[in-house]
Amino acid sequence: MIKKAFLILLVAFTGYVFFVAASARPFGSPRVVVSKRYLEKGLNETGSQNIVTSVVVLYRGFDTLGEVTVLFLAATALAALISGFPFERKERTEPSLVMSTASRYLFPLILLFGAYIFVHGHLTPGGGFPGGVVIASGFLLMFLAFRKYRVSEGGLIVTEGLAGFFYVLIGLIGLYLLGSFLASFLPPGRLHTLLSGGIIPLIYILIGFKVGSEMTGILRSLKGEDENG
């Protein structure tokens, strides 16, 4: 009890110090040092209308490669940990007709919407990560609506493996052609149109596929499909 009280006091005190420290720069007036350049030059330098996207994919693109790797790692570790788990199959009733019919019509629309989000990542809010998650949510809907719905493991592995590999490959092409990893070797294109942003749309499409297949893979592992197929 005393230990707990002490811990609470300690965390509260540290939080207060942190608050004082953060308040040294009041809310609403961010210190833009590096971002200044992104805002001023980003549009012409990268050709991407959405500056957040150009920060994510180009300026801090190496982080994003790492981020994709983290998700891949989680999917891998999760599949390794869950393998051999005795999933209990409880008898469930089929979902209602309304549910299954609606899902069947919604599913392609959800996939289309996900694809729209990641293809337009350099023009509108969104991009590879949200797009991929939307796609995975479509698969989740199908898992819920149909007891017998299956996704083949091979398809997921091929999609995520190749998408990841091509992502690194694009980076290496930049290294080879322009001397630095993930350099944009394509022209910025016509601003504000779909074909702009150099390698940004390319990478976001790959990320979309990769995230979509990884999230679906995570759902699939947690559903326990390997054991009682």
Partner: peptide
């Protein structure tokens, strides 16, 4: 995040060059 909010950059060398701008509590909290 705290360091970024005070110096506006994430590069280690760049932060190191601007660390004098921080007040004592900020430095200690970080």
């Amino acid at each position: 995040a705290l360091l970024y909010s005070q110096v506006g950059t994430l590069n280690m060398a760049d932060i190191a060059g601007r660390i004098w701008m921080l007040k004592k509590p900020t430095l200690y909290a970080a």
